[in-house]
């Protein structure tokens, strides 16, 4: 596939004839052109460098300094002390375990339900556009606000969820959702599933709409049943989108302490604390150096996912070529 590119490029210079005046004139033109392109790109590069990479670099260097709110002007180097403090903190390992449960527990149901919704919305029915808009709506609400809403819904005494469970006779006494170590994590995960399903639904729906109808017609002619068509036509065709969406969402859910903060603030007893909500807690304590160190650890872990993501995008680009 890559062999086509050089061939195409080689053919280009042959088409326009060299302007009179020869090579030097052409070089001047190229230089000026390069300058123009550079100048147009400069604002974007400067913006990204100033507002993204510079703060990121300074923040990362903070991980190796004693940097607290009590003396922001003086930040002496402290080597790996911040990392040692984090790795010696038993709470850190608890948050790592919680993070794994939080990410896996959220992403699998989000994916399955989102896929199902997408398959359903692909069919034409009345008010499909309105329905799609409604499905997408939760994505527009802030995570913290969703946390606060679900905090009330899961409230043991006044919450609508216990009320429904009691009325339907599924439970005999109210469940202490956010007060129980066994139920708190499922509760925040349920809230996150509600929130994240929409992203999968929309992404997968877009991918499904790209599957040519001819493929389905051909499969039908060959006598393939619905299940067979799903596994042998639909899934292989949108495989890359599925992988990309899952990878992207993994990174986002990992980095999504907002909902937890609004709902449980990491409680009870740290049972819903994930690594990133723990990082916020350390920041609130004014321990910026330690928070940066934890941030770097998170970044390294997420970089692994990002590499997979980039590999998958490349595969996707090549598939479209």
């Amino acid at each position: 596939m890559t062999t086509t590119a050089p061939g195409r490029r080689a053919a280009e210079p042959a088409a326009p004839a060299d302007p009179p005046g020869g090579r030097s004139n052409r070089r001047a033109f190229t230089r000026r052109r390069a300058l123009t392109i550079g100048a147009f790109l400069a604002p974007a590069f400067i913006a990204v460098a100033v507002f993204t990479y510079y703060p990121m670099l300074v923040g990362s260097l903070g991980a190796f300094r004693t940097w607290t709110i009590y003396n922001v002007a003086d930040q002496p180097w402290s080597g790996l002390d911040n990392f040692r403090t984090i790795l010696a903190d038993p709470l850190f390992y608890g948050t790592v375990m919680n993070t794994i449960v939080w990410v896996v527990g959220s992403i699998v149901p989000q994916f399955v339900i989102g896929f199902a919704l997408a398959l359903w919305m692909r069919r034409k029915f009345r008010f499909r556009g309105l329905y799609q808009a409604l499905v997408f709506f939760p994505w527009a609400i802030s995570g913290f606000l969703i946390g606060v809403l679900f905090r009330w819904m899961f409230n043991s005494e006044f919450g609508v969820i216990n009320d429904l469970l009691l009325r339907s006779g599924l439970v005999e006494s109210p469940l202490p959702w956010l007060a129980s170590p066994a139920l708190a994590m499922p509760a925040v995960i349920i809230a996150n599933i509600w929130y994240g399903v929409t992203f999968f639904a929309i992404m997968i729906l877009a991918a499904l709409q790209s599957v040519p109808d001819e493929l389905y017609e051909a499969a039908a002619l060959d006598g393939a049943g619905k299940v067979r068509v799903f596994w042998n036509v639909t899934v292989p065709y949108i495989r890359t989108t599925l992988a990309l969406t899952v990878l992207l969402r993994t990174i986002w859910i990992f980095n999504f302490p907002d909902l937890i903060f609004g709902m449980t603030a990491g409680g009870p007893g740290g049972r819903t604390h994930i690594v990133t909500s723990y990082m916020i807690e350390i920041t609130q304590q004014g321990e910026y150096g330690r928070a940066s160190a934890l941030g770097l650890i998170v970044m390294l872990v997420l970089a692994i996912f990002a590499v997979f993501y980039l590999l998958a995008t490349r595969e996707k680009k090549e598939a479209y070529r």
């Binding site: 300058l35 100048a39 400069a42 400067i46 913006a47 100033v50």
Partner: peptide
């Protein structure tokens, strides 16, 4: 024409940086 375009872009970059 190219030079004035570059100038505008440079100004925009400068404004952003400031």
């Amino acid at each position: 024409k190219h030079r004035s375009a570059s100038f505008v872009a440079m100004m925009a970059a400068g404004a952003l940086a400031l």
